[in-house]
């Protein structure tokens, strides 16, 4: 066995490719087959040394008081189903401790009498992150707070599709506000 290192390395190399590839596979499934939900949000702009710049998101649905499943403790993984409110934004419907039937549910973390959603970052370019934050702040001052993300949801997995400011996708909104200036 002269080449045992090579054989082991080829297996390892396969695992190294398989790990990110499996992320892609799962996400593609959700993006293709999942239903779309809109979550109203408030963006701020931090940095992640390895993964670049992102907009940190806080959701209205996360401050919504829910009735936790019996015997569930804070920090535990739960499954929530969603329902649209009068304005068409997602609200938390029911919270279960095991997977419910159907495709439209997400895995989340129980935080007392609220639920912490499994997404809170929107990755953007270095240039766009501060612009997006200041655009949102400006909107907020004029008292017409209108930011939301569209999320595709499929059997527990939740894939953020797009961040909207003032009913426009982030990129378009920033381009337009740049030309208006």
């Amino acid at each position: 066995m002269k080449h045992w290192r090579l054989i082991v390395f080829v297996l390892v190399a396969f695992a190294q490719i398989a790990a990110p590839a499996s992320l892609i596979w799962k996400r593609e499934q959700t993006l293709r087959r999942g239903g779309v939900w809109k979550f109203r949000t408030a963006p701020v702009d931090p940095v992640d040394a390895f993964r670049g710049r992102y907009i940190s998101l806080q959701f209205e649905a996360e401050s919504q008081e829910i009735s936790p499943p019996p015997n569930a403790s804070s920090g535990q993984t739960v499954f929530t189903t969603l329902k649209p409110n009068a304005e068409g934004f997602a609200e938390i419907d029911q919270v279960f401790s095991s997977r419910p039937a159907g495709d439209d549910f997400i895995e989340a973390e129980l935080a007392g009498k609220t639920v912490k959603l499994p997404f809170d970052k929107y990755w953007v370019t270095e240039r766009d992150a501060p612009a997006a934050e200041s655009a949102y702040r400006a909107q907020n001052r004029r008292d017409k707070r209108n930011a939301f993300v569209t999320v595709r949801i499929f059997r527990g997995d939740a894939a953020i599709e797009q961040l909207y400011l003032d009913d426009q996708p982030l990129g378009e909104y920033l381009r337009q506000s740049a030309t208006v200036k």
Partner: peptide, 9 residues
């Protein structure tokens, strides 16, 4: 980079 591209949390 894959996490970024697919908005994986």
């Amino acid at each position: 980079l894959v996490s970024q591209t697919y908005q994986i949390q």
